[in-house]
Amino acid sequence: MLVKSERIELNKRRTKTAGWIEKFGVYIMILVLLILGTLISNKFLTIDNLANVVHAVALLGIVAVGVTFVTYSGHFADMSVPGIIALSGMVAVDMLRYGLVVSLASGLVTGLMVGLINAFVVGKLRANPIIWTLAVAFVINGVVRWLYRGEQIYPDLKAGEKLATAFVNLARINIGGAVPITVVVFLVMVIIGQLLLTKTKFGVQLKLIGSSYEVARMTGVNVTGMVGLAFILSALAASIGGILLTSLVKIGAYYNGVGYDFRAVTAIVLGGVSLAGGKGNMIGVLGGVVVIGLLNNILTLLGVGTFSQTIVQGLVFILVVWFNTYSLRKLGKADG
């Protein structure tokens, strides 16, 4: 039998543990994977290998950071992300002939405009986010294929050798000769995102909206603006990712970015952001993205074939989320 104060103490401790698991649970997973990897191969725990892992998932991470705002605000996911990636990349290539700055700016603006439309329809008119962004993805896909007649476009044919080289090298810059730019952009975005979520009015209000939209509205939060902003940030991140991806593959094409919608959600959820909204943080998303990279790395080092890798990825995903939900519920912080 517990005395009242003891019970309160225990509850406090439980809540604390729960909060900890909620915030950083994914890092337990990373630790497990790191140990596993070290046991499997002596080349695993080298800077080169780990750097490769992060490099390979950096683009996914950039996109995931943006979608996190949408998920955090309780609006599930932005399914128009693949469309934005393809569109902003193609526009950037197309505008390259007017100079690199114009190209990048127009790529970003295109993404922003799609984000604005999403912001208006979901934020203002309260359309269902998944379905609306899905419709947007369909429309973008159709428009892009129609405009470019199903062709892919190349920077050097659009703008000549010099500008093309500048554009193509964008994703190949190494900061300090060692750190790829995609990784730098990703980490910077994580930090900015984390600051936005924790240190600004926007972040606090977004959390409130994610926890309960109605309560947020009643307390006078500008829900329309905040939700809209989340979608705009998501589109912005996707267009940054889209431009970098296009620069990497040297092709503007309507199929660039396929699959990024679901992969981003996978990373976000692994990172402890609840689809119900209002829970999680960017550091967790960073972890979620790294887990995806590490898992692939270890499975390939083990020599597991593609088919079995697919199964393992699916199962690990379910198990991790299950564990997360289960432990949170046991600890008295039910999810959703």
Partner: peptide
């Protein structure tokens, strides 16, 4: 040494080849 099907994606192929380079040296 190995065969993998990462799809037609630059990032995924990059990861597989990097992993191979680590694994097989």
């Amino acid at each position: 040494l190995d065969k993998q099907a990462p799809g037609f994606e630059a990032e995924k192929t990059m990861q597989v080849v990097s992993d191979w380079l680590t694994r097989f040296g």
